[in-house]
Design a protein around this nucleic acid. Sequence first.
DNA 1: AAGCTAACAGACAGGTCTGTCTACCACCAG
DNA 2: CTGGTGGTAGACAGACCTGTCTGTTAGCTT
Lengths: 192, 192
Amino acid sequence: MPAPRTPAGSARERILETAFRLFYAYGPRGVGVDTVIAESGVAKATLYKHFPRKDDLVLAYLDKVDQAWFGALRAAARAAGDAPRDQLVGMYDALAGACRREGYHGCAFINTAAEFPTGSEVHARTVEHKDVVRAWVTDLARRAGAAEPELLARQLTLLLDGGLAAGVLDGDPAVAEAAKRSARALVDAALG
Amino acid sequence: MPAPRTPAGSARERILETAFRLFYAYGPRGVGVDTVIAESGVAKATLYKHFPRKDDLVLAYLDKVDQAWFGALRAAARAAGDAPRDQLVGMYDALAGACRREGYHGCAFINTAAEFPTGSEVHARTVEHKDVVRAWVTDLARRAGAAEPELLARQLTLLLDGGLAAGVLDGDPAVAEAAKRSARALVDAALG
DNA sequence: AAGCTAACAGACAGGTCTGTCTACCACCAG
DNA sequence: CTGGTGGTAGACAGACCTGTCTGTTAGCTT
């Protein structure tokens, strides 16, 4: 048994997948551990073995969201071509994709950050994620030849956050379209 | 006693002011009714007399935030002069003011919306607020002569939401500066 | 066959939450 | 002086929350 030490439908996977779904829909604080247990068909002891505190489960949830969202962002950028300038605009297609998804409910990081106190481990993890994304965008902006890559990246991530965050209110796809057009205008203004 | 039927330091005022402070800092769901009672120095029966359900208090909180934030937005716009075009950019000074304020913790509406289920009364109230603001911005954009006032308003409120929402992660004032410069670029692009 | 591991099932403790209820007090108008 | 109003103080019910604990079962390895 070289690879599948933890098989696909293992208890841990089921817990995490259920938590992902419920936490995103209702907010981590709005979902009790008992609900996660019931919906994932797992014993309480098993959950607490894999995730000793509920916060550990929340952190794992955030990591899962990070993988999915940051992955979608990079995929959308790549799909727009090789030029960094095109990628800066193309990544907004990931936003459109998110808006269209059933059960879209805004930015998991901002929503979660709103529920946890500022100094907490969970809150810190959300900040980390945003920093990683902004660093990636900054790098793209620099390679695109922006005079002030830090500023452009800040502007573009601001727009991205706004588009994502607004999704908790209404998932209007017009938001994604407006964001993309804004991004194009900002990139054009910054790069001439 | 013609005017002061409800005196300044009345129980209702104290409750609402305390709720405002606590709900914004920890999120409505993160603050128990008992805490509001203790901090406002009021009896439990009194609170439930004025606000029969906790949600009523949350709604009153949102209305208070709405007054404060929308008021600041219009004041900042007015301070930028009479031209609608200048006001569209000037309103972002309200964002800078918010970022600098002690205890700044992002957008109360988005944070609250994240904690309540989509169909609920509280959630609906947050959506209303955003719609009112966007309608106001749309009107400004129209009077500024935008070809697509709906789109420009959507773009500008998106930016505003992004700047506000990001505040729950870190209250970096660079955000407000970037937002204002974005706004100027977008307005210039839309109005020529 | 023996033993180990992972998981299941569910009771339980201790705390917090919302919302109700009783009882008392202070003031002011008639 | 009497009754209404608005407030205080706090017990209480019932639900829900996290986290712990006991005991059992199934499968795999040796």
